[in-house]
């Protein structure tokens, strides 16, 4: 097995083993950290499908995450305070599919428009749509406007108690494994080949007879739906949502994670999320300006280590 595969295995085993150890050692705080890491990892992995494999620089991915979180929060809110009979529910079997469906729909509508543009325009318009959602939720008084909305009750699921930190964690962890497998499988499939071909040379792919627009749109919807799912997990984890979760800087952070870890690699986005969480945790103890070293690191990666962390690892041993 190549070094890359060993690292993949090691990271995934570590993520499975560490949280119970933290609990056993009486450090539940680190379980929270790991949960956040895993959820961000799912969101970054979903972004990797379009950013890494599709070459679509989407600067509005946090909107999908936010929509997913509100799809948990709003039904729970109505269940407690009345109104909104159509959506009122504590049931995770309703909330989570709702999160996926609404974010997929949002991705379909905005993607259909955004993908008509290219390059910088694409970046700008994806960001504009995300900001639109951001201001939309800021303007809704009922759901807390810019103060946000407390989720008083986590999603109710059969067999799983999300109020239990370890159960919540392993639910997220299993989701992460699924997300990694899904993106990996899609990337290697015929669909993925077309997507990557269009990233490298769109005109060539059109000349071969591929309607690349449809392929990109499909990837965009899958990616958005997965990010919405991550959002539903995030809502359950923080039990609080606010429009701030959809701010453009949040989208930027997700992009950082993908690029830092290694775009178009299976594990890169997760590694990027890990580095992000660690840096944030360590450096924010010393300074509130912890974004600065993070930014410098990103510049270093872009300049000196194309392919991100996974690129460095792969080059080191596989000669690739």
């Amino acid at each position: 097995m190549a070094l890359r595969h060993w690292i993949t295995l090691a990271v995934l085993v570590l993520l499975a083993v560490m949280p119970p150890v933290f609990i056993w050692m009486g450090n539940p705080f680190y379980v929270d950290l790991a949960t956040r890491l895993v959820i961000l990892g799912i969101a970054a992995t979903s972004l990797n499908l379009i950013l890494g494999y599709g070459g679509l620089i989407s600067f509005g991915h946090a909107a999908f995450v936010g929509i997913g979180a509100y799809a948990v929060g709003i039904p729970a809110y109505h269940m407690l305070y009345g109104g909104g009979e159509a959506v009122a529910s504590f049931n995770g079997m309703f909330q989570i599919p709702l999160a996926v469906a609404v974010s997929a729909l949002f991705a379909l509508i905005t993607g259909a428009i955004c993908l008509r543009t290219k390059g910088v325009y694409f970046i700008m318009i994806t960001m504009a749509f995300a900001q639109m959602v951001y201001y939309f939720f800021i303007s809704i008084e009922e759901y807390g406007a810019d103060d946000g909305l407390v989720i008083d009750m986590r999603s109710q699921l059969p067999f799983i108690e999300l109020d239990e930190p370890l159960q919540l964690y392993f639910f997220c962890y299993a989701s992460l494994i699924a997300a990694l497998l899904i993106v990996r499988t899609i990337a290697n499939s015929r669909f993925g080949m077309v997507l990557q071909g269009a990233k490298g040379n769109n005109e060539r792919m059109v000349t071969l007879g591929y309607n690349t627009y449809l392929y990109k749109l499909t990837a965009y919807v899958i990616s958005g739906a997965m990010a919405g799912y991550a959002g539903a997990l995030l809502g359950n984890f923080t039990t609080f949502i606010s429009p701030e979760m959809m701010d453009w800087s949040r989208s930027g952070e997700l992009m950082f994670m993908v690029i830092l870890g290694g775009a178009a690699t299976t594990l890169g986005p997760l590694m990027g999320s890990a580095v992000f969480i660690i840096i944030e945790e360590v450096l924010s103890n010393y300074t509130i300006y912890w974004h600065l070293p993070f930014g410098l690191m990103l510049i270093a990666v872009v300049l000196f280590a194309r392919g991100g962390l996974m690129g460095v690892i792969g080059r080191g041993r596989d000669g690739k």
Binding site: T185, S189, R190, F191, G192, M193, V194, Y210
Partner: peptide, 15 residues
């Protein structure tokens, strides 16, 4: 692949 039917196939590795 372009003339081997549509490419909305997500599961099997293309290679």
């Amino acid at each position: 692949q372009a003339r081997d039917g549509h490419s909305f196939r997500f599961l099997r590795p293309a290679r």
